[in-house]
């Protein structure tokens, strides 16, 4: 299996900008510290951790939104995601705000045009996705009328608009009802069956255990452990990720 993502000894520090704190000797906060892992092609890889553990920072470093202070990151075998590489990538941010005054269809067309999807295909593709997530009847509505869960669905729709080869999901289940969560899991598994590599962060450990191939536990910016879920499930029938996570993070 080829590696789609390779992270080697990556460290990131958020520098303190408050001059008074700097005088007191506060240099900043650790984003991530010396983390290394690989993600294989077609794999579902998840990072779990407490709030502020460094999950989103890791993801942003991989996406090239933040440059790490140290270490190397390779995506699709390249040192940095650039230009057309992004056309193979889908991304759902943790909190995705959209221009509230825009209509859903306009927003999807905007992102579709940025992905260079031809106009003829784009409207069909948008309709197909919106049907799947149950928002087709709302496509001419302005986003200001949407609930938090609906906006999360919009985020997922825009992330899969380009049939990505690599999909990044930051807290994809956040704000979703149980039915919508099932739907997201269904979408993730469908994409995996098509060969898409999925990298996601979440707090909802039941979902991780049911769909992830490997799980990385991150705590205070450090990678604690990478679990091979298939192997563990075969070896231990009564394995509960939640209990394991609490125990591991507690020890650290």
């Amino acid at each position: 299996m080829n590696n789609v993502i390779s992270v080697k000894n990556v460290s990131l520090m958020y520098k303190e900008r408050d001059i008074f704190k700097k005088i007191k000797g506060v240099n900043g906060n650790i984003g991530v510290k010396n983390i290394s892992f690989d993600v294989g092609e077609g794999e579902i890889f998840s990072i779990i951790g407490l709030n502020g553990a460094g999950k989103t920072s890791t993801l942003k470093c991989i996406l090239g939104l933040i440059k790490p202070d140290e270490g190397e990151i390779e995506v699709f075998g390249k040192k940095e995601l650039k230009g057309m590489d992004f056309e193979k990538v889908g991304y759902l941010p943790e909190i995705s705000y959209y221009p509230k005054s825009m209509k859903l269809m306009d927003l999807m067309r905007y992102y579709g045009e940025l992905y260079n999807i031809p106009k003829v295909e784009l409207d069909e593709k948008i309709d197909e996705i919106l049907k799947k997530i149950g928002l087709i009847s709302r496509k001419t509505d302005r986003l200001e009328k949407f609930s938090k869960g609906m906006l999360q669905k919009v985020g997922i729709a825009q992330a899969v608009l380009n049939n990505p080869k690599l999909l990044f999901l930051d807290e994809p289940m956040s704000g979703l009802d149980p039915l919508a969560r099932e739907l997201v899991i269904e979408i993730i598994l469908e994409l995996k069956s098509k060969g898409t590599t999925i990298f996601f962060n979440t707090h909802i450990l039941e979902d991780v255990a049911s769909i992830a191939d490997r799980v990385a536990i991150i705590n205070k910016g450090k990678l604690v452990e990478v679990l091979d879920m298939k192997k563990i499930m075969l070896e231990q029938d009564d394995f509960l990720l939640k209990n394991y996570f609490i125990k591991t993070v507690g020890e650290n």
Binding site: L65, F86, P93, E94, I95, S96, Y111, Q158
Partner: peptide
């Protein structure tokens, strides 16, 4: 601030 910029920058936009 609202992070909507990420959605544009991750769509092959420099």
């Amino acid at each position: 601030a609202e992070k909507s910029i990420y959605l544009v920058l991750t769509k092959a936009v420099t």
